[in-house]
């Protein structure tokens, strides 16, 4: 790691007045004497810094900003979760466990217990892909401005099977998979007291839209929290993550299914796939197969198939297609 200075931000305004870049802005660039970036839990950032990919001159810690570590819940409005809430706090939240099972499952399977004690929700959303080319100082890939996605012709067993022609990386936040399925929104603070709220679909951007990063955060913006709409007792959900191993691992494929049931029928459904494309994607064709139907093996199976229709696997990752089919089906059947 290169040398940097350290500053503890006192407030969101204080932090925003200090920083001038995101980690992604300076990723892959030579150390610069005036690059000031945020750090929350630091799990992702320190990994990038240790690899030599990100070299800030100053880090502004937002970890101790008052108010960003709160979890608020009401039956009417659902959750407002501060960006600095740790994954461990979220994992152990009883309401999340009871009413938002898929989210609980996704959080509980993220990283290790040690990491969840440090990792923040905001940082989890804003983390960068774990693509091995991207993470390697030895590879100047598309995400670092070269125009070359090494995964296209290279080693791509863990890479995207959809929208994978520009950059085949997959986003690593399995928590996002579940949040998107619950139609969560991301609260973002910008300069001069400006704030905005975007849906998860808006938060994530395709590599064609922005080669540099997977989200819309600008250099002077900060995630302050996540809002998750209320759910009623008819909402059932389930999350499945398939990694190379059951112990802590990144997803080879993960899925969150959220269904609103009524008298044995599914009124509404959201299915989100993680590790399928460069960012989490809603499998709308699959969700359509559920809406208005009684959920059984055959309906679930048809949704599984629909979820990967049109997939364009690379040389080594066609195996992900049947895995998605299977875990989508299983998540649906497990949810009800």
């Amino acid at each position: 790691m290169n040398k940097f200075s350290w500053y503890e931000a006192k407030s969101v305004e204080d932090a925003l007045s200090k920083v001038n870049a995101t980690a992604s802005d300076i990723l892959g660039k030579a150390p610069n004497s005036s690059s000031v970036i945020f750090k929350a839990g630091g799990i992702d950032l320190l990994d990038l810094m240790k690899e030599g990919l990100v070299n800030p001159s100053t880090i502004v810690s937002i970890k101790n900003i008052p108010g960003l570590d709160k979890i608020e819940y009401s039956e009417q409005d659902g959750f407002k979760i501060g960006a600095n809430v740790t994954l461990e706090e979220l994992e152990n939240n009883a309401v999340v466990k009871e009413k938002y099972l898929a989210l609980h499952q996704a959080v509980a399977h993220a990283g290790t217990a040690q990491l969840r004690n440090s990792a923040t929700l905001g940082g989890n959303l804003a983390q960068r892909t774990r693509c091995w080319y991207f993470r390697s100082i030895d590879h100047q890939c598309y995400r670092k401005g070269s125009g070359t996605c090494y995964a296209q012709e290279g080693e791509n067993e863990f890479h995207a099977i959809m929208n994978n022609k520009t950059c085949a990386s997959v986003h690593s936040s399995s928590v996002s998979t579940a949040l998107m399925a619950f139609n969560a929104t991301v609260e973002i603070a910008g300069p001069n007291g400006k704030t905005r709220s975007v849906t998860m679909e808006e938060f994530f951007v395709d590599p064609e839209t922005d080669s540099r990063t997977e989200n819309i955060l600008a250099s002077n913006e900060l995630i302050t929290g996540i809002a998750i709409p209320a759910v009623n007792e008819n909402v059932k959900s389930f999350y499945i993550k398939q990694g190379a191993r059951e112990s802590h691992d990144w997803a080879i494929a993960d899925v969150a299914v959220v269904m609103e049931m009524s008298g044995g029928k599914c009124n509404n459904a959201e299915i989100v796939l993680g590790a399928a494309a460069p960012v989490p994607v809603k499998a709308e064709d699959a969700a359509k197969k559920l809406r208005g139907k009684s959920i059984n093996e055959s309906v679930a199976s048809s949704a599984g198939k629909a979820s990967v229709k049109g997939a364009t696997p690379l040389a080594n990752n066609a195996y992900k297609v049947p895995i998605f089919r299977s875990i989508v089906k299983r998540a649906i059947l497990n949810a009800v």
Binding site: S17, K29, V36, Q140, G145, N220
Partner: peptide
């Protein structure tokens, strides 16, 4: 420039690419 000091497929030599200056937008109240 996003070339920075990273190597494209081992094609450049460590430390030979000039540092980029003025790449960042905001002026920092240092």
């Amino acid at each position: 420039s996003r070339r920075g000091f990273l190597k494209g497929a081992g094609m450049t030599t460590v430390g030979t690419v000039a540092l980029q200056s003025g790449v960042l937008g905001n002026t920092l109240d240092e």
